[in-house]
Design a protein around this nucleic acid. Sequence first.
DNA 1: CTTGACCTTCCCATCATGGGAAGCTTGAAG
DNA 2: CTTCAAGCTTCCCATGATGGGAAGGTCAAG
Lengths: 129, 129
Amino acid sequence: MNIGQAAAASQVSPKMIRHYEDIGLVQRPKRTPSNYRTYSDNDVHVLRFVRAARDLGFSLKQIGELLSLWRDRRRPSRKVKALVAQHIGELERRIAEMQAMKAALEHLSHHCHGDERPECPILDGLARP
Amino acid sequence: MNIGQAAAASQVSPKMIRHYEDIGLVQRPKRTPSNYRTYSDNDVHVLRFVRAARDLGFSLKQIGELLSLWRDRRRPSRKVKALVAQHIGELERRIAEMQAMKAALEHLSHHCHGDERPECPILDGLARP
DNA sequence: CTTGACCTTCCCATCATGGGAAGCTTGAAG
DNA sequence: CTTCAAGCTTCCCATGATGGGAAGGTCAAG
């Protein structure tokens, strides 16, 4: 498989596949005599794994750890679960942060008439010490 | 006021103050004969506004728009409210995205024993086509 | 054998922030 | 007055994940 086909099969763009290779996240694939990268079904399987983990919001660093656990047949599932728990915690933190922003914005917005007049409690709120 | 004092007063780091100046978000301050930037109370007021808007998750581009509305005494408050509504929408989108990730992760995690054994439904879930 | 689609590498951009170097200025203490 | 630290200046580089685009090589179908 060429990189374009591997990309289509894994839903990871050629650009990103090359990038993941550069940073050592995925193995360097074999090359044809004309220097084209060739991907096996297993390579695509790895790329799909990466893609799935990205879709769940893991960082590439975390995905590296997930990949080595995935490859390690003697891993304790405890380690995987811990990694996931940490990521869930991070998501919760960010969700809470954004919900607080949203609530503050709704509060400000609630008091703003939103008409043609210039009076605006939103701007006043932002300008307030 | 020197940049350090303006930074302390506005809670915006000197690095960021210079950066905001570079990208034209805030006016270039006057300089002393020895080329030090000097900030007025009003400059600090602007920086505090920027900081408050950043804390609410606005992008620097949006903050630029907020600043010009703030400066425009004839603004219709409608425009401010629309900007805020758009940002709230964006926050909601991102919150929902992360909540979906969190739910998916919790689902996977729920089925994982998290002990010393290698069997791991989390990894299986990520590897599944 | 040409043509278009694909591949290669390389550089640059995004967004907000920070680190750090090299060199100049200021203010306080000796 | 000199000296020394702290603070200022500009400039370059890094982050993290992704993409755009150029210049040039390769492959397959017509």
